[in-house]
Write a protein that binds this DNA or RNA. Structure first.
Lengths: 338, 338
DNA sequence: CTGAAAGCGCTTACAG
DNA sequence: CTGAAAGCGCTTACAG
């Protein structure tokens, strides 16, 4: 297409130095005389030189790119606004480091196969994993292939092998539940996330923590399991109304599930928050736009994506895996005001 | 990290042929004897060989990757569910062609600069453009750099230079408006999209087409401009209720804007669809979950993403730019039933 | 501080 | 049909 792009040799000629020197100022490692540096920089500007990443990668063995890997079935991924925010943050952080972001979606078996081959093939320096489910064979394969990985949320059972950055799910859930207790609720239900994710188990643990700390019983009729989606939230609240008609609050482990309880409660003639208080988790864009707006637990996704990238760079550089937890905060809106 | 991966030479040794032959069977271009092919394939399987894309790119001058470029300010991009569906479809289509998808976000001035440099640097074979606004200098720069591009939606003023795939916005809008006319509405308003996008102007044109075809006047009090977002939808309907209290229908150029009219209409005491019918555009996930669910114009995003990739491959191979339009369809729900 | 040179792993005319 | 060889554009010891 476009005519030949200038190479390092063109720059060298223009600057009157050897092309090894050009490479040196490009990489800024070895010592180069100030005059040479200036001459090269000028030459780069004049020629419009831009480094050929493929040649560099071939020489260094580093690809200069990172994969953002999605393993959930698509509908979950793209329904979840958290995902977008995370992606945005990661793109930003990577761009700042001059790394490119490769998006990979591995939902179908075929895609999963291709993904493994690709990642295994050294095409990327590392991978960022979103919403990993423990027991996913893909994860073990990645670990075996010694691909540097950082997950969003701990990978249950592989914590030692896979670095991760998580919100403080347990503390967040506990705070939310204690808020409901403080508001006088005594029949507090929860709709959990999938229990093969750290978010799922930790948010449930935070809920029971709060109950126990306040001497309230753990009633299994008040615990239903969802998978983060609206559908599961709607199904969950229906089951709850059925099993425990005296429910006076529900803590849903995601905003999507919490939002889905609202129309069901309305149709059942239960006022929110008058009859049933509702608290979600995520503080996604959704939370502020529901009717009534949702109280929820905010997780600092910008911070999470930033830390994920930073950590991944460390892991790529050979540092040992690490788990990072970032704090969450309660956001009160009309669905369960102060 | 991982120990040395097998190269083409390892495969050659294992297969007992020269490595040039291995390369030939890999690329499947030149004639190779069946025995050699089999020997090489076996050797590939045994060694677990996987091609080094960087080496290949360096030799061929093709990067094997495509950029998915987002130029909107982030909030727009990630609020819009269409974007996700498009991204998903593109990822799929690209994966089928063994191309990698590089996600680039160019919203801040700094990011835009880096983006231009990157794209200009031949790091990708082509770029897929989402929601381009005409007059964006980035577009002209890309065209000048002769980067192969396919846009989603025509790029107004650059139609000849930039291939595009669009929904049939005009026909869709016309159909929606005619449906409202057929339902007996006579004071039909519209909330437009941005008029520097083909979606914005074409949907407005479809609206006026329908009005004129049925002898209804074009009343500027009934036309307000939005930018696809909920906020602009809410502001739009408020302005309409103010300027034209007798409005009996609104056609919004996006589901997000249509959805945002609902609570405002409710608060204003207008029943939907009894007093005011509402029709959106996109048939995004949103449309089915609003209260009441939205009638809308469906655009086949899966098809659009597929065509975008196919077209881009053509353009990369030197074919001349082309514009493709795919049909839309009216989807009726409670906000404006049949 | 800076050349000359080898090498990264492939592709592709060039000769057979 | 298949070798041997050059070349893609860089980085990085190796010698000065």
């Amino acid at each position: 297409m476009s005519r030949k792009r200038p190479t390092i040799r063109d720059v060298a000629r223009e600057a009157g130095v050897s092309y090894a020197t050009v490479s040196r100022v490009l990489n800024g490692r070895d010592w180069v005389s100030p005059e040479a540096v200036r001459a090269v920089q000028d030459a780069i500007a004049r020629t419009g030189y831009t480094t050929n990443q493929h040649a560099r990668s071939l020489a260094t063995g580093r690809s200069g790119s990172i994969a953002f890997l999605l393993t959930e079935p698509q509908h979950l991924l793209f329904e979840d606004p958290n995902f977008s925010v995370l992606l945005r943050g990661v793109a930003q952080a990577l761009s700042d480091r001059e790394q490119t972001l490769i998006l990979m979606i591995a939902s179908t078996p075929e895609e999963r196969l291709r993904t493994i081959a690709f990642l295994n093939g050294g095409h990327v320096d590392g991978v960022l994993l979103v919403s990993p489910h423990s027991g996913d064979p893909l994860l073990t394969q990645l670990v075996q292939a010694q691909v540097p990985i950082v997950a969003c949320g701990r990978v249950l059972g592989l914590e030692e092998m896979i670095s991760s950055v998580s919100a403080d799910d347990r503390a967040g859930a506990r705070t939310a539940t204690e808020h409901l207790i403080a508001a006088g609720c005594r029949r507090i239900a929860t709709i959990t996330g999938p229990l093969d994710t750290s978010g799922g188990v930790d948010r449930l643990a935070g809920y029971t923590d709060a109950l126990m700390a306040h001497g309230l019983p753990i009633d299994h009729d008040l615990i239903v399991h969802g998978d983060w989606t609206r559908q599961s939230g709607a199904a969950g609240i229906r089951a709850l109304l059925d099993r425990a008609p005296d429910v006076d609050a529900v803590f849903a482990a995601s905003d999507a599930m919490a939002a889905a309880t609202l129309p069901v409660l309305r149709d059942a003639g239960r006022g929110v928050p008058a009859d049933v208080r509702v608290v979600g988790f995520d503080d996604s864009g959704l939370a502020a736009t529901t009717e009534p707006p949702l109280s929820t637990v905010r997780q600092p996704l910008e911070r999470i994506s930033e830390e994920m990238v930073r950590l991944l760079v460390d892991v790529i550089n050979g540092r040992t895996p690490l788990s990072i937890t970032v704090p969450t905060g309660l956001v009160l809106r009309s669905s369960s005001p102060a």
